[in-house]
Design a protein around this nucleic acid. Structure first.
Lengths: 120, 120
DNA sequence: CTCGATCGATGACGTTTGTCAACAATGGCG
DNA sequence: CGCCATTGTTGACAAACGTCATCGATCGAG
């Protein structure tokens, strides 16, 4: 099942720290996003329905944990973008940022080191 | 205005070849996506409303052209993904693909050459 | 035991998206 | 000149999304 943009904010909170109660999630993402308690609860419910997170009983409340690994999510999202926009190739994406002047010197240095290491 | 996933297929067709009549667009994207003529027409209308494309009269029909440059679209989408998932940094994205075993030798070679050139 | 606070479940509602079909205008063919 | 085909405009409708409030169960305090 597909995870929506608002839902992914909840996922990110759970990936940062797991498990969390709904109260903690609300505290974590409510304020920054201007969401009421009801909104966050609804997002949690939808994530449960989508089997993206699990709820384990803890007294009278639940502790929520991700069922979907962040790595897998990120991998799928990235691959999707690459396929849709760059014909599945990574180099053109890097070129895009480079030409857009979006690469800091540090970015370039990091990339350089990274590529060196990979190609060893 | 945001361009939806289905709409972007129309955009891609127009970026490939511009301008196109609706008939040509339908021929281009209808079949591969299993869309009827009505569906494609609706997508064209919405893109017009979103000012993502323009229509110039040509006899009794229109010729459609993108108003949004592919480069800008791709840049925005890529930046968005990077910000959302990689804290705005490019190197971690490359790492992600590398660790996922998603990089072919050719990819690595390309990247290497690219980084060399950029860092000169 | 009773009452109030808390928590999850659910209903609600407007907007966007995906998908089509129906209709109206219009131009060309016979 | 009248009819048909083509093209754009609109209406439709279900599903997903963003957002929020209400309701019912339940647990703990008094």
């Amino acid at each position: 099942m597909k995870i929506s943009s608002a839902e992914s904010v909840i996922m990110e909170a759970l990936w940062r720290k797991t498990p969390l109660t709904s109260e903690a999630i609300i505290a974590e993402v409510g304020e920054p996003n201007g969401w009421t308690e009801g909104t966050v609860k609804q997002l949690i419910s939808r994530l449960l329905k989508k089997k993206a997170i699990a709820a384990q009983p803890d007294g009278r409340r639940y502790l929520y944990s991700p069922l979907l690994a962040r790595r897998d999510y990120v991998q799928a999202e990235s691959q999707g973008l690459l396929d849709r926009l760059f014909d599945g190739r990574l180099a053109p994406l890097v070129t895009q940022f480079s030409e857009g002047g979006k690469l800091s010197d540090e970015d370039v240095a990091e990339l350089k080191a990274l590529v060196e290491r990979i190609s060893k």
